[in-house]
Design a binder for these strands. Sequence first.
DNA 1: GTTATTATAACGACTGGTCTATATAACGTC
DNA 2: GACGTTATATAGACCAGTCGTTATAATAAC
Lengths: 186, 186
Amino acid sequence: MSNAREHILQTTCDLMEKQGYYGTGLNEIVKESGAPKGSLYHYFPEGKEQITSEAVLQSGKATAERIQNGLSSNSNAAKAIHDFILNIADHVESSGFAAGSPLTAVAMETATKSERINSACREAYTLLETAFKEKLLESGFTKLKAEELGTFITATVEGGIILSRTYHSGNPLRTAAKYLKVLLSQ
Amino acid sequence: MSNAREHILQTTCDLMEKQGYYGTGLNEIVKESGAPKGSLYHYFPEGKEQITSEAVLQSGKATAERIQNGLSSNSNAAKAIHDFILNIADHVESSGFAAGSPLTAVAMETATKSERINSACREAYTLLETAFKEKLLESGFTKLKAEELGTFITATVEGGIILSRTYHSGNPLRTAAKYLKVLLSQ
DNA sequence: GTTATTATAACGACTGGTCTATATAACGTC
DNA sequence: GACGTTATATAGACCAGTCGTTATAATAAC
């Protein structure tokens, strides 16, 4: 399989997670990934929008998988989600507050600017919500509650990451974990 | 007082709310605001970082005020916050999903890139958290709970706005309102 | 006449995107 | 295996346009 293509996509994910869509230039992707610029338009003939859409989707899939794996360690959904969010807090901290929420910045910047990227973001977020939802279903929540809480958890975690990155502290995420557990335990 | 200066700041707020820091050019600010271009570096001699920092802080103050006013209509904090978030959902929808969360995109893009803008974002978010916190204090929550829930609500609302703008639907925010009320009512 | 404000043009650096040339791999045919 | 042929992939110079910024000149206000 193509190595350069994967490299370009992964680099795009990392850079856009840190600095968003408009803050990430193609030249920077090329430079950081080590891939030649000729390859960029060979693999992604439709340019930056295509690269971004694929990167967003890849991020979504990877994150959804991490959610599934993270939640599988504990059968109790409330406890599992609580611990999972604590892990995110550590991850955000250890990245120097550059990582966490690979979708947020891109989603906000492009919500009304690129139909194509927005569509990819929607798809990616649905993957995350579904990952939480399925854990809740397994734990006995009704279908409606599992779906709504999947949305609620996703929103709270996203917001917690924003605050943690802004404050340069994992504590907002830890607070989010604490009260989400309260809500899910009742 | 200077009209052009205020115009520039307000336009910067609006544009960055929609498309973030890197997605907003100074030329676009000048064009959109109608302010004379020469004035830009006259009023903001330290350039884009200065304009952005001031715009972020102005956004924070305006949003905190809107929170205070929005919550004052109902003495019950849980109900007041619920209704307030429903209003945000309407606002996001009626803006065509371009408005809501004036800080998010900028905060994420610059969390590790500009100390100055990051500092302004931190200050702005603290204003929002404090606005919620004070309503909770009035409603009888302990100081610690009011503080933590202020953070939690801010995170959930931010995340809800992201999802609503991405999905082009106010419903994620309405779901957030519903379960926040559950949490605050117990 | 001094200061505050606005106008204009230009700067170097960088943007996303295109182009041509070259190298490498893949594959059927002898 | 060896050959020529065709796709795939790498390499980077190059384009017009925009970026944030600066310098200088003109104008307005007091």
